[in-house]
Every structure is written in structure tokens, then in C-alpha cells.
Design a protein around this nucleic acid. Structure first.
Lengths: 239, 239
DNA sequence: AATATACTATTTATAATATAATTATAAATA
DNA sequence: TATTTATAATTATATTATAAATAGTATATT
């Protein structure tokens, strides 16, 4: 159990959460009992029970007398929880999972851009402008591509001034990281990619919601299309 | 503290969660210490601490030695957690919150309909057909309007066969309940409303993604428009 | 005066132990 | 066969003790 700088409870939450998302403990199956977890990880019942409660709060497990601790059906999992998302990432998601991420991005981001053009404060616009500048730097190799990309897309969510969209920042951040697993980690941002992002920004800054929406949607459709093609190819290979 | 049939920990989670979402405990402010919570609710430290851990897992609070228990900034709250959503509902959300709900619905549901038309299994289609039939019954006063409406919209999310969209069922369910707070609770479903839903279903069943998307988007835009008008009117009154 | 260091008190973190409540399964009974 | 009762497994709750973390204060140092 890697300690990091977290307390025992948080460490156990991390270990078990990771194992559940990786399918080491399967839906409907039992985890070791409280007593067994204490023994396995050599920690007190106090810490163990608190970890179990935290995973319960995230919808991953249920724990009841006599029945023990069971993995809940995945429809109950808090997939937008930042820790759960990280456990998905750790679990080496496949192309189908990437498609799921991208389908929701396509659903969310164009509308976020629309709302940003409507409701962004000047300070919100500046944050997006800043992120775009980082992407320019990354294009020239002077900044981290992934970080700049994350900052750009999440700053638009922030500019929507809608708490639900803001909550989805975690989701987008992990989605971009999953995406990177399937592309070249170290490739620079191309001029085309940069321009697509700049278009979105310009339309937000110019307070043109529909154009901002459409610019965002255009890039999302291309990305989903690429993954659909990759999956089709994969399935044809398999037969 | 209402007991329901939940255990002590869950009861305290509910009480504190509700209070935080209602703003009784404000962002950045401290909650009573562990010891004080034990005294206030007359329960053991064990139960109290487990409740605190569960709220921590939902991103509502942090608890550290000497610092105590503090309400985290709302950007950390797991707004898509089913309990958190219920606490929002309990907290009597205003028109602005309704707009936030509707903005995300507009973002999610048309794309869910698109994916449903692409990926729904026959059994998924049957579930939507069933929900539509319930709406017809509700139109005639033979079924519950709200329940039928919830079943229709969530069954489409289910038919997307995308775990992230499926997770958002809770969100849509609460969104519809919030919406109802601002319309007539007992009004029957009108013929127009029913037809709009039937259009979405037909296009999903006929495997026409774009038409399903557009039919859904059309109704969502109307709803958002109504709330925007209501807010404009409200703000003009206030001056 | 400004900065670093050590001290102190507060609060949570962890552990250990005891007992109660819940409930799935098995056994007994009608 | 169906119903009830008993048993055992497991979590739920309570209590107590000690450790660790840390914000704030006091002290010492430059």
C-alpha cells in the first residue's frame, strides 16, 4: 500500500477503489470482511471502516451486517468523482471507454462554449485567453501540451458560470489524459489544432454563442469520428 | 434528526449534507468539531467520524487536525451524487438553479437521444416505448405525470449505453422535480407535450440519430427559453 | 524590527475492546 | 411443503486511550 502523504484511511480508499475500477473485485462480488481487511492491510478497524464508508459514499460498495461488503452495480458509481475518474485512468481504459469519454465531451463542450459566450465575465475571458497563449507556447515546444490543453478546455467550463458544467472539469481533464494514451504523448500541437482552439476562443470573446458552439462541435465531431474509425478497424481485424 | 430506516451514520450524513446545501454552514466556515457533533446529536465518535468521512468523500468538507471540519468550496462538491442532488432539491432551488439544471439537460439529452438511436438494444427501445405509453396514460389522468416523465427521459439515457450518460439519470430525475416546483404540480400532460416526446421516441426507434437529436433539442430549447423569459421578467421587476 | 525557532493547546487520526443489531442460512416444527 | 425458530456471521455503535498533525503564541536570534 503506497503511503504518499495521505492518512491510512485515504490510502485504503485508494487501494480498494483502484481494485474495484480495475475489476479485481467484480460487480456483485464480496470484498474481504472488515476483519479480513484489517488483517490484510494491518490497520485498525477504525481506519478500515472509515475507508469502507468513503467508498460507500462514492457509490462503489454497500456494506450490511451478515451480507458483508459488496461491489455495487456500476450504475451507482459516482463516475464524476475526481478520485473515481483517476481510478478509471489508472485502470488503462480501452478504446470503447475513450469513445464514452468523447461522446460526453461532444455533448458538453459545445454548449459550455455557448454559455461562456453568453455569461463569461471579463476575468473568465482572460483565463481562456491565457490558456490559449499557453497552447501557442506548447506549439513551439515551450510549454506542456497536455497541461495547456486541459487549462483551455476547463477554463471554458468555468466561464459557463454554471456549477454543473464547472463540476465536469474533472471529467474533461481525465478525458484529455485518456485521449493522450492513444495518441503520441510527445507530439506538439499542430497549427490546425491551435487554430481550431483559437476559433472557439474568438467566438466566445466576441460574445457569439452559436458560432462558439459550432466551432467547438466541429472539433469534437472530428475526434469522435477518428475513434469510431479506429474501433471499426479494430473490430474488422478481430472479425 | 429524522431516523427513517437508516443507521446513525447515514442519518447524520443526511442532516449535515442538507445543512451544507441549504447554506446553514457556509463555504469556508467551520462545522462543529467531532466532539461537539457527538454532543449535539448524542451519538458516538465512531458514528460521527464515519459521517464526516462520507461527506468528505462527496467533496463537501475537509477535516484536518487542529483545523477542524470545514465546508469546501462548491467547485469540489459532487453535484452528480444522488444524495447531493436530493439535498439541492430539499434546499428549495430558485429560478437560477432551475436554469442551471435546464442548461445541462439541453446539453445532455439531445446527444443521449442521438446515441440511443445509434446504440440502443431492442430491449432499450421497449423500455422507452413503455415510458411513452405511461405518458399517454398520464395525459388521460391514469398515471403519474412526473414519474412517467422521469421514466421516459432516463430510459433514453439508459439506451445510450454510455456509462457517463447513464450516471446522469439522477441528475435528470432531480432536474424534472425542480422543474415541477415552478409549474403546476397537478397539470396533466398536454397533447403537444406528448407529441414532442413521441417524436423523439419514433426517431430513436427508427434509428435516425440526427432527427432524434433535433427533436429533443427543440423541446429543450423551448423550456430554457421559458425560464430565461421568467428570469428576465423577474429582474425587470426588481430593477 | 524582522525572522526563525520552539512551545502549547486544539483537533483529528489511529488503535483496541466490548457489546448490540442485523440478517442470511440452517434447523426445527407444523 | 411451508412456516417458524435458532444459529452464526458480519457490520453498527459505543467507549477509552494514545498518537499525530498543526494553527497560533511565545521566545529567541539576527
Amino acid at each position: 500500500m503506497q503511503s504518499g502523504h495521505r492518512n491510512l484511511t485515504q490510502q485504503l480508499v485508494h487501494e480498494l477503489g483502484k481494485d474495484i475500477l480495475q475489476g479485481k473485485y467484480k460487480v456483485g462480488n464480496k470484498l474481504p470482511s472488515e476483519a479480513d481487511l484489517c488483517a490484510q492491510y494491518d490497520i485498525s478497524r477504525t481506519a478500515t471502516r472509515e475507508a469502507v464508508k468513503m467508498l460507500t459514499a462514492k457509490g462503489l460498495i454497500s456494506s450490511r451486517p451478515r451480507q458483508g461488503i459488496k461491489v455495487l452495480d456500476s450504475k451507482h458509481w459516482n463516475l464524476f468523482d475526481v478520485e473515481v475518474l483517476n481510478w478509471i485512468l489508472i485502470g488503462k481504459p480501452d478504446l470503447y471507454m475513450l469513445r464514452h469519454f468523447l461522446q460526453l465531451r461532444l455533448s458538453i463542450e459545445p454548449e459550455a462554449a455557448y454559455l461562456a459566450a453568453q455569461y463569461a465575465k471579463d476575468s473568465d475571458i482572460e483565463l481562456i485567453r491565457n490558456a490559449l497563449a499557453r497552447m501557442k507556447s506548447a506549439e513551439d515546444g515551450y510549454d506542456d501540451t497536455l497541461e495547456a490543453d486541459i487549462e483551455f478546455h476547463t477554463s471554458i467550463l468555468g466561464a459557463s458560470n454554471n456549477p454543473f458544467f464547472i463540476q465536469l472539469k474533472n471529467f474533461i481533464e481525465i478525458a484529455l489524459q485518456v485521449n493522450l494514451r492513444f495518441t503520441n504523448r510527445f507530439k506538439a500541437i499542430t497549427i490546425d489544432e491551435y487554430q481550431a482552439h483559437a476559433d472557439i476562443f474568438d467566438n466566445i470573446a466576441n460574445r457569439n454563442p452559436q458560432a462558439a458552439h459550432d466551432a467547438s462541435l466541429k472539433t469534437q465531431k472530428i475526434t469522435v469520428g477518428l475513434v469510431n474509425d479506429a474501433i471499426t478497424e479494430l473490430e474488422e481485424k478481430k472479425g
